[in-house]
Amino acid sequence: MDSPPFESFSRVLSETIGPLFVSAIIGGALQGVIGGQAIYYFKYNKADPLVMKCLVLFVWVLNILHYFLVVDAIFIYTVNGHGDPSSVSRLTWSDIAIVLVSDTGDLAVKSIFSYRVWRLSRQWYLSVAIMTGALVTFSFSLYLTITMIQSPSVMPNAVGTFGALITLAISDIIMSVILAMVFWKRRSVFPTVNRVLRMVILYSLETSLVTR
């Protein structure tokens, strides 16, 4: 009589905790890459404004925090809740915090990109377009976080979940298209520079399409 619940428990672990565990492993490896990029930035971009440096530091800290939240969620489900089927029926504080931290990081990253776009193009409406998409995504994520706090034992709110995912994908595509336009307008008479710009444009578009 006890086998069906435990079979369901095992299936939930393999379908949810398994991917979370894999993401933690990959995230741990990428933390070194992100840390190296941050150190390189602070070492060779000392002329950047203080606001930009604070944004980069903020994004770096959020990435580290996001990684530790994922590890904590795995620990709670697999160690604290070991052998307890009911442990997966309730969201932990780490699960809830991951949503907000992730989209706060996305908002900070898009703030950096919007600033860079304004510096390169001097067209404020392009930056506004990037930030509008980021703020809409953050609003859906904030709404989702609030509903998860209010009802941690039920499925996450569909409006908040799909709204955040869809607007995140759209805002990423908008940002990639704007970056491509700005880079394309800065073409040079030198073929080597144009080849580099073309590679950056293709990388930006492909990254947006593949990751979303």
Rank of each mutant, 00 (worst) to 15 (best):
I34C: 06
W118S: 08
P85E: 01
V22R: 08
S176V: 01
F190H: 14
I64R: 08
P19L: 00
G32Y: 11
R186L: 10
L197F: 13
V154N: 10
S139K: 00
S176D: 00
V109D: 05
I34R: 02
V196S: 10
T104P: 00
M1N: 14
S141M: 02
I17M: 08
V33W: 10
Q37H: 15
W60S: 06
S127W: 05
S8H: 11
V109C: 09
S176F: 00
G18L: 15
V88K: 11
T132Y: 03
A134R: 01
V22A: 12
D103Q: 10
R11D: 14
F183W: 12
R186Q: 13
R187G: 04
T147D: 13
T104F: 02
C54F: 11
V61Q: 04
V177A: 09
Y143V: 03
I178T: 01
V210E: 03
Y115I: 10
S3R: 14
L202S: 09
V196H: 12
D106L: 15
R90Y: 14
S86A: 10
L205Y: 05
R11C: 08
I64E: 09
G28D: 07
L179G: 02
N80F: 12
D172V: 01
I34F: 09
L62T: 07
I146S: 04
L144G: 04
I166Y: 06
Y115Q: 06
V22F: 15
I39R: 07
